[in-house]
């Protein structure tokens, strides 16, 4: 089975956000970069599927600037077999163009099964999985927590959790795409032997021009970033219990307007 996992390299969620002077981007120089956690759940599931079936290959694919190679190396060290990188100059492509690039590569590679995260944790757009499935004309489901490959390896059952703890099970024939939410698995660490082996694995590169996409301009442009207002200091109500309670109710009613 030819499994593809679509990854995005994103800033560590603990990174401190600073806006660039022209306000249309974020200062990225000091960031620590990681694989987007939802994509990491997808990768872990893909690796487990391969191990359970004792067959198939797992290829990780990303679109991004040079530094995105680190995310691919990490994925290789975790156990992915192959890696492909669509190299871009800018790291501010819109989701449409990124999805076009991913789809162009996938068309050539003919995967049976495509896994990814339901969204990247940097811009939270949750758009790429849908575009990619559409461009490839394959069925897709988003927000899955697990899946089961059919014994004949021709279809997959994806499980979603819906409101109230109910389960929603969706069956799709291969080829298809499953986009993961925080799943049941704990992604493995890249092991030391894995890191050593990853060194010898080749990362196949391509550019947007190679994919015939050089002339497409991003249609979405970031125009203004704003940080949330600084949080106000808390308020301490003095006095004895009865006074405090009265004042608290007054503030909740008149200032916070919640009761």
């Amino acid at each position: 089975m030819n499994i593809f996992v679509l990854l995005k390299q994103v800033p560590d969620t603990e990174s401190k956000i600073r806006i660039s002077p022209d306000r249309n981007n974020i200062e990225k120089n000091d960031f620590k970069w990681i694989i987007s956690p939802y994509d990491e759940f997808a990768l872990e599931e893909a690796l487990r599927t391969k191990e359970a079936l004792k067959a198939g290959t797992v290829t990780v694919l990303t679109v991004g600037p040079d530094r995105a190679v680190e995310a691919l190396r990490t994925a290789l060290a975790m156990g992915a077999d192959n890696a492909m990188h669509v190299k871009t100059e800018s790291d501010n492509l819109d989701t449409f163009l990124v999805s076009r690039a991913l789809a162009e590569v996938l068309k050539k590679e003919n995967p049976d099964f495509i896994l990814t995260g339901k969204q990247a944790v940097d811009d939270d757009q949750a758009a790429v999985f849908g575009y990619v499935a559409e461009f490839l004309n394959v069925p897709s489901v988003s927000g899955a927590i697990k899946y089961e490959v059919a014994p004949d390896r021709k279809s997959v059952k994806a499980y979603k959790e819906v409101e109230g703890g109910a389960k929603h099970v969706i069956e799709m024939p291969f080829p298809c795409l499953v986009a993961f939410t925080k799943g049941l698995n704990t992604p493995r660490y890249a092991s030391l032997p894995g890191i050593m082996k990853a060194k010898k694995k080749e990362i196949k590169g391509a550019t947007l021009a190679d994919l015939g996409l050089a002339s497409i301009e991003p249609t979405v442009k970031d125009s203004d970033y704003q940080l949330p207002p600084e949080r106000q200091a808390g308020k301490k109500i003095p006095g004895d219990g009865a006074t405090q309670a009265r004042e608290l109710v007054r503030l909740l009613r008149e200032e916070a307007k919640v009761i």
Partner: peptide, 10 residues
């Protein structure tokens, strides 16, 4: 090296 960085990170 890249591997040493990855090793430290891991």
């Amino acid at each position: 090296s890249d591997e040493q960085m990855a090793l430290k990170e891991m």
